[in-house]
């Protein structure tokens, strides 16, 4: 499968273990209205079913304790239906979702924060990077010793008791759009070569005929970067990436000065 949404989601949007008890009180409230009545209402962690069937303004006023100091974003049913139908003309789910977000954005409709890596790939990096390129992310299991963390073995390591299996994802970008994202098939590489990052990246480059940048990082570091991106005060995730690269905990294979410069730019400027 060329667009493996499950692997993409697992890589960039890991599952939640605990239910968030304290909701973000500033999370927006989304409404769909039809002929002035609320037919759908949602806000994370809230049960807004009492809003259904009420006139929009009355619902907002009646439940002012919920909507006070919060953005209430209202869409008309016709618009939403039209956008959803139009989204089906796009080739894959990633682009379909991006289309919906673009349509909803003028009404302040999207609060979505993409993963910082995806955000960077969709930014001005697109003007610097080649028109077609690949990024191979290999997330290693948390190492039991410090030396194992730097081994950067490419393929799925034998599973250890209590240790999650390694995740890996190849993303191919062509003309600024995600063309493919999936776990690559490395079965044709021998057992020895599959554990050598340089061989893996070379194989993927030759197979897909685009330059592929390999990034080999431990699961702990990957999670730390994501946490830093989510929490405003925890620090710039790119700075953590740069520090990790400097300490050799994260490997770029092959090492490309251009890519390192892009990361450094994000980290320190």
């Amino acid at each position: 499968m060329n667009q493996d949404w499950i692997s993409f989601q697992e890589m960039f949007y890991p599952r939640k273990r605990a239910r968030s008890v304290s909701q973000d009180v500033r999370a927006p409230i989304y409404l769909v209205e039809d002929q002035g009545l609320v037919i759908s209402a949602s806000s994370e962690g809230e049960d807004l079913s009492p809003w259904l069937g009420l006139p929009v303004q009355e619902a907002i006023e009646r439940y002012a304790y919920l909507s006070k100091d919060r953005k209430v974003v209202t869409f008309t049913r016709q618009d939403v239906d039209r956008w959803i139908l139009e989204s089906t003309t796009h080739p894959n789910f990633y682009e379909q979702v991006e289309f919906l977000r673009q349509q909803a954005a003028p009404q302040g409709g999207t609060q979505f924060n993409p993963h910082f890596v995806i955000q960077a790939m969709n930014s001005w990096w697109g003007k610097v990077l080649p028109s077609a390129y690949g990024i191979y992310l290999s997330i290693q299991p948390p190492a039991p010793t410090s030396s194992a963390a730097t081994s950067g073995s490419a393929a799925a390591a034998p599973s250890q008791a209590g240790v999650p299996p390694v995740k890996h994802l190849l993303m191919l970008v062509r003309r600024g759009k995600f063309d493919q994202f999936h776990e690559p098939d490395l079965s044709s590489l021998g057992n020895d070569r599959r554990h050598r990052p340089d061989h893996v990246v070379k194989y993927l480059t030759e197979k897909h005929l685009v330059p592929v940048q390999g990034v080999f990082v431990s699961a702990n570091e990957w999670q730390e970067w994501a946490d830093a991106a989510n929490a405003a005060r925890a620090g710039n995730p790119w700075r953590k990436v740069a520090q990790s690269m400097k300490a050799n905990r994260t490997q770029l294979v092959p090492f490309r000065w251009g890519v390192a410069s892009l990361i450094a730019t994000r980290a320190f400027l």
């Binding site: 968030s20 962690g45 939403v80 977000r101 909803a104 409709g109 999207t110 924060n113």
Partner: peptide, 18 residues
């Protein structure tokens, strides 16, 4: 569930559990 899913895709948050 269609509108709930639309909201979830916009926000990137959790699905409408209720």
């Amino acid at each position: 569930y269609q509108y709930s899913q639309f909201f979830q895709l916009l926000s990137g948050k959790s699905a409408d559990f209720n």
